[in-house]
Design a protein around this nucleic acid. Structure first.
Lengths: 233, 233
DNA sequence: ATTTGATATTTGATGCAACAAATTTGTTGC
DNA sequence: GCAACAAATTTGTTGCATCAAATATCAAAT
C-alpha cells in the first residue's frame, strides 16, 4: 500500500472522468434562452415588433445582452428583420411552412435513421416514459405539457444519432414552427394522431430497423404539416 | 396635353417601378462579412485564437461590431467556443467532416432536385459560363479563383430552388469546410474530378431530370469528401 | 377633410469605460 | 531546475452615453 507515492494518480487532467462545465451563464446567454422560450411558447403574436430597449426592460438587463439575444435569434431565423429598424417574430406563411417542412423531412429522417443504429435499451425506456407523459398530458388537457414532452421525445431520438450539428439545425427549424403549434389546440389534443407514429418509431428502434424509424418520423412530420397547413393562409 | 392635372401620376407608391433598397451596411454587417470571408479563405490556421479586441483593431472598428461578428459566426458554427474566454476557428476533425458531409448530402440533394424543376435557360447559360471559368482558372493555376467559381456554380443551382432558408443552411455548412479546401491544392487542380460531375449536373438540368441532377451533386460531394478525408487525421 | 411638411420622439448602431474572470508572467523557495 | 504562489496583463461582459436614421405626431395649407 502506498508503494509508489511519486506515481501520480492521473497522468493528466485530460484523463479525469469529468466533463468540463460550461460556464455559459452570461446575461446574453440567459436573455437568449429566455427570449427563445417565450417565442416558442407563442407569447408574441406573429408580426409583433420587438425593440432592443423593450426586451432589455422586460428582462431587466441592459441593452447589450438584449441586443445579443435578438441578433442571435435573427441569425437562426426565429426573428426576422422586417424593415430598417424593425425586428418581428415572423408569421408562418404557407411558403415558409412548406420550405421548413421539406428541410425537416430530410434532416429528421437522417437523424432518425442513424439513431436506429445507436439506440440503447435505456433510451428506449426513456422514450416509452416520455410517450406515456404525452398521453397523460393529453388526458389532462395540459396542452403545453404535451407539446413539451413531444419535443423531448423527438429530440431524444435525434440526440441518439450523436450528430450535434445536425441536432442544432433541427432545433432551429422547430423554433420557427413552435409558435404556430400553440394555435392547434384543441384539435391536436383530441385527434392524437402523433401517438401511433411514435409507437411505430419506438418499435422500429427496438428492432433496429432504420427504414421503419425513418418512415415513422416522416409520417409524423407530414401529419403535423397537414394540421398546420390548414391554419396558415 | 395636360388635360387632367388633378389625376395623380401614380395611384400609390406600390405602383412605382422601383425596388426597395436594402440598407444592410452597418459596421457589424461589414465586419461579419469580412471576417467570414477571411475564415473561408483560410487566413486563420485551425485552432487559432480570435479575440474581440484583435478583430476590432484589424478591422479598425470598435469592439461592438467586432463582437457582433464573432458571436454571429459562433452561432453558425464557423467559430467555436473552446474554453471560457477563447474562441477559435475549429479544426476540421474526421468526425466533424463526416457529420457535415452527411448533412450536405441530404440538403444539397434536396436543393438540386427542386432546382431541376425551376431551372431556366438563362440560368443554364450562366452555369456553363461558370464552368468555363472554373476550367480556365484551373488551367491558369489560380486555385482560389477556381474555388470561388466552384462555389458560385453550386449556389446558383441551390438558389434556383427558391428556398432561401435552405440556401442559408447549406452556406453555413460550406463555411465549415471552406478553410480546409485551401489545403487541397494542387491535388484538386490536377485531378479535375469535379468537372465531369458539373457537366452531368448541367445535362440533368437541361433535361429537367431531377434524379440525374441530384445524383451528380451527390457524387460531387462524395468525391470532395474523399479528398478532404485524407487530409484530416 | 386630406395631404404635405416640419417637429418631436423612438430606436438601432457604435464607441468606450468599468468590472470580473481568466491567463500569462514573474518571483520565490526548495 | 521546478513547483507554487502572487502580481500583472489580457479579455469577454455589461452598461450607458451619443449619434444618426426612422417613425410618429401635429399643424398648416389647399
Amino acid at each position: 500500500m502506498f508503494s509508489d507515492l511519486t506515481d501520480p494518480i492521473l497522468k493528466s487532467a485530460a484523463e479525469m472522468p469529468l466533463v468540463p462545465i460550461d460556464r455559459q451563464t452570461s446575461l446574453g446567454e440567459l436573455a437568449y434562452a429566455s427570449l427563445k422560450e417565450a417565442i416558442v411558447r407563442g407569447e408574441f403574436s406573429a408580426g409583433q415588433k420587438l425593440t432592443v430597449r423593450a426586451v432589455a426592460q422586460a428582462l431587466e438587463v441592459s441593452t447589450t445582452p438584449a441586443r445579443d439575444a435578438i441578433m442571435r435569434l435573427i441569425g437562426e431565423g426565429a426573428l426576422v428583420n422586417a424593415g430598417p429598424k424593425t425586428v418581428i417574430v415572423p408569421p408562418l406563411t404557407k411558403t415558409a411552412l412548406d420550405e421548413v417542412t421539406a428541410i425537416r423531412l430530410v434532416l429528421e429522417a437522417l437523424a432518425a435513421k442513424i439513431a436506429a443504429a445507436n439506440i440503447s435499451p435505456e433510451t428506449i425506456d426513456k422514450l416509452k416514459t416520455l410517450q406515456s407523459q404525452i398521453n397523460s398530458a393529453l388526458d389532462a388537457g395540459n396542452y403545453s405539457a404535451a407539446l413539451k414532452a413531444n419535443k423531448a421525445f423527438h429530440f431524444l431520438i435525434y440526440q441518439t444519432a450523436k450528430m450535434p450539428r445536425l441536432t442544432t439545425m433541427i432545433e432551429s427549424l422547430w423554433v420557427r414552427i413552435g409558435p404556430s403549434l400553440n394555435d392547434l389546440y384543441p384539435e391536436f389534443a383530441t385527434s392524437r394522431v402523433g401517438v401511433s407514429n411514435h409507437m411505430e418509431a419506438i418499435a422500429g428502434l427496438e428492432s433496429r430497423d432504420a427504414a421503419r424509424v425513418q418512415a415513422a418520423i416522416e409520417k409524423d412530420i407530414r401529419d403535423g404539416y397537414r394540421r398546420l397547413a390548414t391554419r396558415v393562409e
